[in-house]
Design a protein around this nucleic acid. Sequence first.
DNA 1: ATGGTAGGGCACCTA
Length: 255
Amino acid sequence: MRIASWNVNSLNVRLPHLEQWLRERAPDVAALQETKLEDSRFPDDALAALGYHSVFAGQKTYNGVALLSRMPATDVQIGIPGFEDEQRRVIAATFGDLRVVNLYVVNGHSVGSEKYAYKLRWLDAVHGWLASERLRWPNLVVLGDFNIAPADRDTHDPAIWNDDSILTSTAERAALRRLEGLGLADSYRWFSDEAGQFSWWDYRAAAFRRNLGLRIDLVLASEGLRPRATGAAIDREPRTWERPSDHAPVWLDID
DNA sequence: ATGGTAGGGCACCTA
């Protein structure tokens, strides 16, 4: 079973990319972020033609998340329970014995900004919710665009991406570690200790060609899934296509 | 190099 995540940065623009990628990589579950589409415009018919069910929570212009799956979703949850938020950043659903939580974590703009405070508040609310999800579901996968690079080896330059930089600051990394403290592991690290493996590259300054990136798209999995895990990947190929998303798809394969 | 590029939507905001 392949569980994937991809920040598509506008599904309106990236639908052809997504269709090709679904055909080639055949994920069983795909979590999408930054769909930037109102629900009435979600291309569920086109995705159904490829054999995927869709559940989604979108809005105009910004944010938007979706879960595509071979089997229908049950127990769909949109948003963080008890946390008022107009921004569509969270959708969760159950597929068989697996609970899947798709997150588009707040970017945060810059350390100390209002958006940064919102990011930390939002992550705190996610932590509280996931603590109960973790008890309810032994097989829990929390994946998406975390907008946090877990460690220095997940950045192209730790001098730039330091304790005071957005996406790598001390408080952001502490929030990520708190989520991991619930018994969730960065599953990519079950398979690779390599530095310089990135999932996002800025559109500017030829960052992809120069591999100036960050690994901020993560698949956290409950420790009980580790014996079932058979591989993890960052799929750089769609980043080489014409008019790409700035993010690469990532995935975890489990038996 | 406080720039650079991309998406949405038509003036800037977000990333």
